[in-house]
Design a binder for these strands. Sequence first.
DNA 1: CCGCATCCTTTAGGATACTG
DNA 2: CAGTATCCTAAAGGATGCGG
Lengths: 114, 114
Amino acid sequence: MRGSGFRNDIGGEQVKCAHDELPYRIGDKWTAHVLRGLQDGRRRFTELRAGMPVVTPKVLTETLRAMERDGTVTRTEYDENPPRVEYELTEQGHKLLGLLDLCCEWARENLVET
Amino acid sequence: MRGSGFRNDIGGEQVKCAHDELPYRIGDKWTAHVLRGLQDGRRRFTELRAGMPVVTPKVLTETLRAMERDGTVTRTEYDENPPRVEYELTEQGHKLLGLLDLCCEWARENLVET
DNA sequence: CCGCATCCTTTAGGATACTG
DNA sequence: CAGTATCCTAAAGGATGCGG
C-alpha cells in the first residue's frame, strides 16, 4: 500500500507526504477516526473499531500500521490468550489531533451549509 | 466528480467533508498546490499551472471549480481575446493556507527522516 | 488561452473467508 | 481476539484531442 511515505516539496518546504502533495496522511479515510478514537487513552483493536463507522479489519489494520510507522500511535501486544493488543496516541499523535480540531473549526466557520 | 460535499460526523462534530471523513478537501492531490500557487496574489490559469508539478488542465480545472464552490478561490473571467481568466484566494482560502502551513510545520517537526 | 469531452489507468478502500 | 489472504469495485486522476 502507501508504505514508506514520499518526499515532496510544497512551497519550497520538504515534507513527508501521504498521497504526494499533502503533508502527512490526514487526508485518507480513517486516520482522523483513529485520532478521535484514541483521544481519551489507549484502546484495544476491537474497542477502537467499535467506536467508529463500519470499517473492515484489513483497512483499519493498514491505517494503524501506517500511523505506527509514522510515529503517531504505539502498538502494545500482550502475551495473553486470547490475544490482546492496545493502541495509544503518541505525543505527536496528540499534536496532530490538535491540527484536526483546527481543521474542523475552520470548516464549521467557513463552509456554508449546502 | 466529488461535487456537492458530504455531511459527516467526527467526534460528534458535523463538518463538511471531501472524502467523507476529513473536514474539507485539503486531502486531495492538488488543492494544497493551488493554495501555494495563489498565496502571493491572483494568477492566470497558465501561470498557476506552470508553478506546480505537471498536472493536466482537466484536473486542475476540476480542482479550481471545487474550490470555487467551496468559497476558497474566486474566478474572474475577462472578456478579451485571447481569453484571460484569473484566480485569487478568498479570505477563507488564506485561512486554509494558514492551516496548511501548520500541517507542514507539524510534519517537519514530528516526522523522522526515512 | 482556457478550457471541455472522451477514454483509460491506478489504487484506496471494501467484501468475504480464514488462521494463531 | 486480532488480525491475514484474496479478490473485487469505485473513483480519483491521467492522456489525448477538439473547440470558442
